[in-house]
Nucleic acid binder design. Structure first.
Length: 319
DNA sequence: TGCCAGGCGGGGT
DNA sequence: ACCCCGCATGGC
């Protein structure tokens, strides 16, 4: 413990993203200070022979992608480039989706004012699940505090040579189990049992669907698949959406059932509904439900408020 | 202080 | 197929 992994630069490339594409907006989406610093996006990844990290920034002709790794090995280059494409959605074609949400009362602002914003994905299903568990029965603020604690206390520490950058990754299942006692310090509370159980299941790879694992229900499983696989054809329904969707789209001031929300989302956004779920949290700044309803009512929703939100988290976290 | 919050499973009906 | 409760933590 306490040791840094030093990574050196082994490759650089420029990738042309599919338009419409805005690098900065995408890189800052749900990014902490370890994921985006205002210019560069940092994307750590694992391979069978060690750790790597891709650093991406906007260049003249496209997105400049540098691969850092523990060894100069082609395996890292391949992984680093494909992880960057996936996480930043460089090959994702949003033209059809943007047409669908053009006149959407919440999401319409994206094709109009924030064109080129894609969801920033995570690198693995495991990471998606970990993030999902931290959101269970917690506010945006508390949930992300837990995620950042997991990284700070249990994560791997990477040092990128010559960049003077140090960043913490989410812990692997192995690290969770090896240091299960330290989980207490991360303030995940009773979610600790779930996290340990899920780590074991991932290590043994002994499940067909995420929902088969105790502690993972509809919401967490769907959110994990949206974030990690860009599997957008399911809507992760929670209490927050059950209040917000009827309020924003039908002026109904009471909660809908999960099934009603799911069917309504399918009608509005079709196979893109999972993406809509994430982007609705982005445009509403993921405020607690009462405040979110108030902002909608008063027409004051703001993507980039002067407080922690999906698009501003990177400014409000400290290493 | 004593609720309450982007879930979940278990145990009741 | 429902309803209800407790679970740990932080914020107000």
């Amino acid at each position: 413990m306490g040791r840094y992994r030093r990574l050196v630069k082994i490759h650089e490339d420029t990738i042309l993203p599919k338009e419409p594409y805005d690098f900065k907006l995408t890189a800052m989406c749900y990014a902490s200070c370890w994921d985006f610093d205002g210019k560069q996006a940092y994307i750590p990844f694992y391979t069978s022979s060690g750790m790597g990290c891709t650093v991406a920034s906007r260049g003249e002709e496209g997105v400049v992608v540098s691969v850092y790794a523990e060894k100069a090995d082609d395996e890292f280059i391949e992984s680093g480039l494909s992880v960057a494409k996936h996480v930043l959605g460089l090959d994702e074609d949003l033209r059809e989706y943007y047409k669908i949400i053009e006149d959407d009362p919440l999401l319409g602002i994206i094709p109009r004012k924030y064109r080129g914003l894609h969801m920033r994905a995570v690198t693995s299903l495991w990471e998606g699940v970990l993030i999902g568990i931290c959101q269970q029965n917690a506010s945006f603020r508390q949930g992300w505090t837990m995620v950042l604690n997991l990284r700070r206390i249990l994560g791997e520490v990477l040092q990128l040579e010559k960049l003077n950058v140090i960043l913490n990754t989410l812990p692997t299942p192995e690290r969770i189990l090896r240091q299960a006692k330290k989980l207490k310090e991360t303030k995940v509370g009773y979610r600790r049992d779930t996290i340990v159980n899920v780590a074991k299941s991932f290590l043994k790879a002994e499940f067909e669907k995420l929902e088969d694992i105790k502690g993972i229900g509809q919401y967490t499983a769907r959110l994990a698949r949206v974030l990690a696989l860009r599997k957008y054809d399911e809507f992760p329904v929670d209490r927050w959406f059950s209040r917000l969707i009827p309020y924003a789209y039908e002026s109904v001031d009471r909660e809908w059932s999960r099934q009603k929300v799911e069917r309504y989302a399918e009608k509005l956004w079709g196979k893109w509904r999972g993406l809509s779920a994430v982007l609705i949290t982005v445009v509403t700044a993921a405020e607690p439900i009462q405040e979110a309803l108030q902002s909608i009512r008063e027409g004051t929703i703001d993507l980039m408020p002067n407080k922690p939100a999906p698009m501003t988290l990177w400014k409000y976290t400290k290493p």
